[in-house]
Design a binder for these strands. Structure first.
Lengths: 194, 194
DNA sequence: TAAAAAAGAATGAACGTTCATTTTTGATAT
DNA sequence: ATATCAAAAATGAACGTTCATTCTTTTTTA
């Protein structure tokens, strides 16, 4: 165990350093030498864990995306009623974006730039399926608007990314009241109006 | 005129090349030499128009942001009723994001990465004032929810960025019906529910 | 014809990656 | 327990390339 454990620790340290440096300086100003230094490792060691810089950032992206969706669906059961299920997932995603904002910022940066390979992007998108299934159910039951999933995501989930970025920039802070308002806006924009 | 005109053309070509290359390759893979080549100019010439690479990208950002807000408010009058005014501005912004998507993509990339100086970011944000004024009026009249402008922007405007990026990636295409649904979602999420 | 604009070649620094060596690890023999 | 040792892991220095920027010269402008 000792050996494998050590390897995993080192890999994790490299991934963490990548996230932190890319968040603060951008991909263009994040040399391998700095990543190595922050992870307390020699530059050459990175290449024992990753093929090259592109592979490092691709794998970091997939790691973080997996953590994001794991967190989002951790307490969700597919048997829940649609509205309750959505509220649960929405709150988990809000928690993730606002508490683990290092991770969330990294995703926002990757999702709006060409720094990630298309293949890794596809890989990352897969894990969102439970939410799409929930929406399909909601549409069938006449609770959720019969819209494209892209529209639903754009209005129900994506605004949280914008709010997270604004908060991170210090422009404003999301308190509990804001969050309740945000949820109402999210639900309002996708529910069928009776 | 000839001389000044030529200078403006060259500056515009440099800005345009910057946008195109940063959109397609990312800032990290956009060397000055490529920008120069695409603008049909010597690398040294860039430094007659811009201090350095950072200045070039900052000024490009400010240029595009100004074009965005100019377009958004072109036909808007502050005397319009709140709902009509919002619908007008929303549609102009949707037009911009979906038709001038090179520009919109560049903004999305800049707004989610640290490639732009904080000062230039602040400069770019200023021009949004008319929309904030409209919302202030809407709140006073009890038409718009009394929420933070960040929340309003997150739900009413920002989803268009996500939809633009999705469309650009070829994931789906926004037709006229989608756009009407999107507008309804936007308005639903910020209007006061009677 | 002098000043301004532009060019291409040159420069030095920084980068991603690899190489030659050293250190660590863990199984085996004592 | 301890010593041995081959394989694996890790390292710092080195390599070749690429980059942003500058320098010197040429071309354009008015």
């Amino acid at each position: 165990m000792a050996k494998l454990q050590k390897s995993i620790d080192k890999r994790n340290a490299l991934v963490k350093a990548t996230i932190e440096l890319v968040n603060n300086n951008g991909f263009h100003a994040t040399p391998m030498s700095k990543i190595a230094k922050m992870a307390n490792v020699s530059p050459a060691t990175i290449y024992l864990y990753f093929e090259n810089k592109q592979d490092l950032v691709n794998q970091t992206y997939i790691n973080v995306k997996a953590a994001y969706t794991k967190y989002a669906f951790e307490t969700y059961k597919a048997t829940m009623p649609v509205e309750a299920g959505f509220e649960l997932i929405w709150n988990r995603i809000a928690d993730f974006k606002l508490n683990e904002c290092e991770n969330a910022m990294f995703l926002a940066q990757c999702d709006n730039t060409p720094i990630i390979d298309e293949a890794s992007r596809q890989e990352g998108i897969k894990h969102l399926q439970p939410l799409l299934d929930l929406w399909a159910r909601g549409k069938k039951e006449g609770i959720v608007k019969p819209m494209s999933d892209y529209l639903l995501y754009a209005y129900a989930i994506n605004p949280l990314s914008f709010l997270m970025m604004s908060q991170k920039r210090g422009a404003f802070t999301l308190d509990k009241t804001h969050l309740e308002e945000a949820y109402q806006s999210a639900w309002n924009s996708i529910k069928v109006c009776k």
